[in-house]
């Protein structure tokens, strides 16, 4: 084997490895960008809450739990009809999510609910001239507040908050870094290949490899049913999480399609430049 062939082989392997790393970086870039647009994006969460009917479902859940509390406290079920307000639930959730995504405070503010509940309770006691013990009423208000906040707070949010904030803070740099590395590899492949069609060949391998990875993820999530088998106590949260999972799956399919189109484009460009090069050497 002569040195020219060995050199060609080494060059092919080197560019192949570069193409592999380009595929890896593009895949990671796509996944990170998807995460920053969905799971790490507050507006995405609020949108999913609206789309999945989270607030009306939460209203029913909280009312049901408070009625059960009322059963143990001498309050009739119709007492709670005017106490729970879905608009207030939405406001409290917005404030909760705002402070969570800001990284400031992760405790739900239940002051408006407590005030409304206390006022309704005082009115009820006065109207019925009911027997009360101050300590029992305080316990009742405290328990009602815990039910309200416990139902609105999202499980594990507090435990995961430090990782969440870290991901939000560093993800833009990760995406930027990966994009930069991808750009460097694209430039190296372009400038190191005298014949343009070779560069497009490696771009095609990278885009097709990334597209296949995204396709595998999309197929897996679609076939497994997404998050439908997750165990959550709250039906409202379950519906929201399933809706979120479905939208992420849709975005994955869109990304797969984007990279499929990119791969086809690179193949087309490779073909065009290859035929041009082949024609010019004839």
């Amino acid at each position: 084997m002569n040195t020219k062939t060995i050199g060609k082989r080494i060059r092919d392997i080197l560019f192949g490895v570069l193409s592999f790393f380009l595929a890896l970086f593009l895949f990671l870039d796509a996944v990170c960008a998807l995460a920053s647009m969905t799971v790490l994006n507050e507006e995405s969460w609020m949108e999913q809450m609206t789309v999945s009917g989270y607030y009306s479902e939460k209203e029913q859940e909280i009312t049901k739990k408070l009625v059960q509390l009322g059963n143990a406290s001498g309050l009739p079920s119709d007492f709670f009809e005017d106490v729970i307000d879905p608009v207030q639930i939405q406001k409290d959730m917005q404030n909760y999510m705002d402070s969570y995504f800001d990284g400031t405070s992760r405790i739900l503010d239940t002051t408006p609910f407590q005030q409304k509940f206390r006022a309704a309770l005082d009115r009820f006691i006065e109207e019925k001239n009911a027997k009360v013990d101050g300590k029992s009423v305080d316990n009742l208000v405290k328990q009602a507040k815990q039910i309200y906040s416990g139902n609105l707070e999202i499980p594990l949010f507090i435990k995961l908050s430090s990782y969440f904030q870290m991901a939000r803070n560093y993800l833009p740099y990760v995406i930027g870094g990966l994009s930069l590395l991808s750009g460097v590899i694209i430039l190296v492949l372009l400038l190191a290949n005298k014949w343009r069609h070779r560069a497009f060949k490696y771009y095609y391998y990278a885009c097709a490899g990334t597209g296949l990875c995204l396709l595998a993820l999309s197929v897996y999530l679609t076939a497994s049913g997404g998050l439908k088998k997750i165990v959550l106590e709250s039906k409202a949260l379950y519906q929201m999480v399933v809706s979120f999972g479905s939208s992420v799956t849709v975005y994955l399919w869109v990304l797969t399609a984007v990279f499929a189109v990119l791969a086809l484009s690179m193949f087309f460009l490779y073909r065009t430049f290859y035929l041009k090069a082949a024609g010019s050497t004839d």
């Binding site: 192949g16 193409s19 592999f20 595929a23 095609y204 391998y205 990334t210 791969a263």
Partner: peptide
Amino acid sequence: SFVILPIIFCIGIF
């Protein structure tokens, strides 16, 4: 190679 290499890349990435 236009079929095999992308598949190898996909397996390699995972």
